[in-house]
Design a protein around this nucleic acid. Structure first.
Lengths: 193, 193
DNA sequence: TGGGATTGTAAGCGACTGCTTACAAGATCG
DNA sequence: CGATCTTGTAAGCAGTCGCTTACAATCCCA
């Protein structure tokens, strides 16, 4: 009788399974509350492989962030960004649609995680958003809008506070885009995008 | 030669020192990253006393939250709340002016900590803020504003992201109150308070 | 077919966590 | 003074953490 039905030999699939499991768990529990044992267990892999492939928990987190954010930020135009970002954020509570921002929110408290967000990710979102305004402090205004989206994601998805947590996403989007357009002002920022 | 210059015998002072140290550390590092040993060390007390007086790390956190929030929320009118809350939030990076919200932000990722914030604290802030609007979804609007303040506090004080982190508080306050007044609309919400 | 590299596994090391215990030192009061 | 309660201390327990090691199974290619 075999005592462990040995995993199929496929390093690429194992790596991907680890990344996927890590992405889910970081989103659900945050960086420090997620253990490498949990990640390996959900991926159905041995935890030693996690260290062989990613070196450390920290580098695994970096890999997850990179993987998840690349495409999202690439496929959205500046005009769509705030609205779509918000929608993604609001929907991410549902089944398994997870957004990297939620992982960011959950991992905020860890200094090593915050370091990455501060430098790499945040800057790109800010730059994209700041295209919407032609004020000279456009980046500050973009940061304020980003901060709002983060805050909403936290209160709604992470904290689960009422009534924000139960509110209709469409209503939220309407309120936020309307108020945000005051900040990101420019001639003719239509309110349907 | 005495090997430990025994602490003065004063339970009230010890309790207070523990509360103060815990408040600082929870603010600086968050709930899970703060250890009871750290708290006891900064308070100059033995860690066993922490458990004698507060029972558990969780109850200590609750005691800190209660102690710190009571007066702040009590001494502010609804009209002053958003502006003053924001100012407190923006100034809290400085010397030792710490705001309970920052502690909240840092401790977000812990489920036990989040539970308390969700129920007790958040509700009171929401209720106060919602007085500013006479819309029927005033509480939702208030939550959105609160979420914004949280988000700004996170990006600025916790994440330290530029340019928000270096921006002039007065500018931030002006932008936010102006955009927020779109949400908390009511006849004659003057923009200087 | 055989030998070295790659992928999987089990076990455990050392450090750290929240929390407890056993006890010494000072206070209080008869 | 001596008994008792309170306050402070040192040490350690049991569990978990990230990470490492030693080794078995499988693949690749000569």
């Amino acid at each position: 009788m075999r005592q462990a039905p040995r995993r199929k030999r496929d390093s690429a699939a194992t790596k991907e399974a680890l990344l996927q499991a890590a992405s889910e768990l970081f989103t659900e529990r945050g960086f420090s509350a997620t253990t490498v044992r949990d990640v390996a267990a959900r991926a159905g892999a041995n935890q030693a492989l996690l260290f062989r492939y990613f070196g450390s928990k920290q580098e695994l987190f970096a890999a997850v962030l990179t993987r998840n954010s690349e495409q999202v930020i690439a496929e959205l135009s500046a005009e769509e960004l705030p609205r779509q970002l918000l929608i993604n954020l609001l929907d991410s509570a549902e089944p398994d649609g997870e957004h990297p921002l939620v992982a960011m929110l959950r991992s905020w408290s860890d200094e090593r995680a915050a370091e990455m967000l501060r430098g790499e990710l945040g800057a790109r979102y800010t730059e994209r958003l700041s295209e919407l305004s032609d004020a000279d402090d456009a980046q500050l205004r973009a940061d304020l809008v980003l901060a709002w989206l983060f805050g909403i994601g936290m209160v709604r998805s992470v904290l689960g506070k009422s009534p924000l947590a139960e509110a209709d996403p469409e209503v939220i989007v309407r309120y936020v885009t309307r108020a945000a357009s005051v900040l990101l002002e420019r001639t003719g920022l239509s309110d349907d995008r």
